[in-house]
Nucleic acid binder design. Structure first.
Lengths: 238, 238
DNA sequence: CGGACCATTGATAATTGTCAAAATTCGTGG
DNA sequence: CCACGAATTTTGACAATTATCAATGGTCCG
């Protein structure tokens, strides 16, 4: 295998073509930028970022998933995002020297592409399209946060459980003739920390849903949903 | 008063100089853009935007405050943002045709400056600095949302009350030799909808804090805080 | 001064958190 | 491929917190 062909393979398999925000670059520039990118790999459970640490790069997830979370005053962790292929973080620190506002930990083996802040900034000034795409992506993420805030503000936990099942079905669900199978990105404790409730409460709610025949627990990380309409009914009008 | 001088006065008093995202424009361009801007006024209680409505402009708040909120399945409203002078909304819809994701209602008399989507887009391509500023501003707003999500995920309502008091002290507080006076942007019901708890719970918690000598209610919308450190202690480690 | 609106307080019910024990699942190594 | 131990999850009982409903008390404004 020649070095050059390996390099092309890189370009296809690494960040470039996976990351929407870079997809407007032409081949020439892609090559230039490729040289600036540093790669990192993390094992499951490893930390990609600690809350309050200084940051100097924008990190793009190339493979795997990671959770972003904050530690709450009462000692839990509140999960904010689940990053997967093509997502990025560190952009908040692009134009200020503020420290990280959350921690990021790998949920699976993760590969990242990192770009130093200064270099990324240059990119933005050179390609307004990239900035425009980032604005669009940040908009999506904000909408997600706004929904989460609405959802977590709902006092009825049943609604919240319904919402999270809908969300996960969209992101991690596969269709089957039995129904929809959700591959949960994390354990029950993760679900609890995403919802902002106690682990045991999640267990109880899931058990109840299983008794009612609305979901079926295949194993700790897979759930079968025969009829998605019933979940929507539980989630309420969203 | 001559028309021309009035116009200059406009430039000073209207959006241009109040809005950080436009402040990088030179005078020439400011003038051009001024012609594109349409102004609106709203009375207290009037709606600036309805959730799920189509949008075609970016709206910049020039005077007054407004709340952005979503209706929850259980019939409450969850407040997401309090917009004041210099804040903007509608940017999510800049590059997609998605409908509004929240409602916006005036808390006081409000004046806005509106820019049509297409025209705003052109601005972004012409001035990458504006896009960069918007990214920065969106980053700030996301950080605020992330904090809110963390805060509301905390099961201990006392912590949450503490957090909101800290936040409001920063945004709406004035120093006094008696301590800090917070001018609440809205009623108890508003506070409750911001926190995601029942109105009565807010009353009870405030009463309790007053009994403990930590706050002093001057009237329905003003609170005196003699010692901010005690509030920080209640909010917990943030 | 009066009326409408908003805030407070009380009593009770419902929900969820907490702690502890039992059951299940998962991964590893034989 | 099975078995074992560790980790995670489920379940139960109880305590704590908050929502709800209803009535009272205040405040603001014309």
């Amino acid at each position: 295998m020649v070095a050059h062909s390996k390099c092309n393979r890189c370009m296809d398999r690494l960040c470039m073509h996976k990351v929407p925000i870079l997809s407007s670059l032409d081949k020439e520039d892609l090559k230039k930028i490729m040289k600036l990118i540093r790669h990192h790999e993390y094992e499951k459970g490893e930390m990609l970022l600690f809350d309050k640490d200084a940051m100097n790069s924008v990190v793009i997830i190339n493979e795997g998933t990671a959770k972003a979370y904050k530690n709450t005053p009462d000692g839990r962790e509140q999960i904010l995002y689940i990053f997967s292929e093509g997502d990025f973080f560190g952009e908040q620190n692009l134009f200020s020297n503020q420290a990280a506002t959350y921690s990021v930990q790998a949920l699976q083996p993760v590969k990242t592409c990192n770009l130093y802040r200064d270099q990324f900034q240059e990119l933005l000034y050179k390609y307004p399209e990239i900035a425009v795409k980032i604005i669009g992506e940040l908009g999506n993420r904000m909408t997600r946060l706004e929904n989460a805030l609405q959802s977590i503000g709902v006092r009825n936990v049943d609604n919240r459980i319904g919402s999270i099942l809908l969300e996960f079905a969209q992101k991690y669900g596969t269709r089957d003739r039995m129904g929809t199978i959700i591959h949960l990105p994390f354990s029950r404790e993760g679900v609890a920390n995403y919802l902002g409730v106690a682990r045991e409460t999640v267990s109880r709610k899931f058990s109840q849903l299983e008794n009612d025949g609305i979901i079926q627990s295949l194993n700790n990380k897979e759930i079968l949903i025969p009829d998605m309409n019933k979940i929507e009914a539980i989630a309420g009008t969203n």
